[in-house]
Design a protein around this nucleic acid. Structure first.
Length: 296
DNA sequence: CCTTGAACCTGGGCGC
DNA sequence: TGCGCCCAGGTTCAAG
């Protein structure tokens, strides 16, 4: 589920509930997700006001009034939903029949404040997600964030920046783009989509997009534009909805209807004038979908 | 340094 | 109906 556009969609869904609210009580329904919760996890969060809900790469960040930040990663299958009491305060997001706790509801943030009582519930069947509490001022130096690459949104991402990091690398382009130290937030779906948009083979050596003098090639500039575009469109569409992904209001995102190559094995390449067929291959243990005809 | 592959965990889909 | 296998949005760690 959660690549950058999905996490950003979750952030926007939770923001009206969390920002300005007080996390009155935290309920852990098990001692660990991917990692054990830190011993002081609950104590550092309870009774704190959430001053801002932000995002870095695929991390959701709830900044607290005590100078700490609650860091949340959704792994492969993590999601949030809003419990009934909070829905009453903001009724547009109300959905029936979802007020019971289920087996994989692992963390409950009970809220209090002018926006009303309520709860935000974290559900994660595979438990690849994790949470931590860190000092807000030390965030960028924290091991989780220190090596993260550039955000693909906004103006920070440039072909020149990428060229610097890709030069001389023989690793397949697909693998290089999944590396969070290069670009933070890209995942399997949007890497496949961006490579198709740019007409570049996922198998091509990453360094082949950089000239000997270190300058980005025209191909790399094209790829940079497609990465920006794919991410921006996915966010505009409310994230993808592969399998079980739901937004915090319970509705499905719909970006999956627009996938050009991801999970489209055997279907004709949608690129105008291309007569190729989408293929699935494995690269470093993950599926890659691409069109061998127009991606070179 | 670089790369690949296994591991973490549950559930859904498919073939038999 | 059931069993066994493969697959899934991510990341980390070990081994070559």
């Amino acid at each position: 589920m959660p690549e950058l556009p999905e996490v950003e969609t979750v952030r926007r869904g939770l923001q009206p509930y969390l920002e300005g609210a007080v996390i009155a009580r935290v309920e852990l329904r098990r001692a660990d997700l991917r990692f054990p919760f830190p011993a002081d996890f609950v104590a550092r969060i309870e009774k704190q006001k959430v001053t801002a809900l932000s995002r870095r790469a695929k991390y959701l960040l709830a900044e607290l009034a005590n100078g700490m930040t609650l860091v949340m990663h959704l792994g492969m299958s993590g999601s949030f939903r809003i419990e009934a009491a909070a829905k009453r305060a903001l009724p547009t997001l109300y959905h029936q029949g979802e007020d019971r706790l289920t087996r994989h509801d692992h963390v409950i943030f009970h809220l209090a404040g002018e926006k009303g009582e309520g709860a935000v519930i974290y559900n994660d069947p595979r438990r690849f997600g994790f949470m931590d509490v860190i000092v807000t001022a030390e965030r960028e130096a924290h091991p989780l964030f220190r090596h993260l690459g550039v955000e693909p949104l906004g103006n920070r991402l440039s072909a020149e920046t990428l060229a610097l990091r890709l030069k001389g690398r023989k690793t397949p382009l697909k693998a290089a783009l999944l590396d969070q130290r290069l670009i933070a937030g890209l995942g399997n779906i949007y890497v496949c989509e961006a490579l198709h948009g740019a007409g570049l083979s996922p198998r091509r050596a990453a360094g082949s997009l950089v000239r000997a003098n270190g300058e980005p090639t025209a191909r790399l500039k094209r790829l940079t534009g497609h990465i920006r575009e794919v991410i921006a469109q996915a966010i505009a569409a409310g994230g993808s909805s592969l399998r079980d992904h739901r937004q915090t209001d319970g509705s499905l995102g719909y970006f999956q209807h627009q996938f050009a190559v991801y999970d489209q094995t055997g279907r004709p390449c949608p690129k105008p004038g291309c007569s190729g067929t989408i293929r699935r291959i494995a690269q470093s243990g993950r599926s890659t979908f691409y069109c061998p005809a127009c991606q070179r």
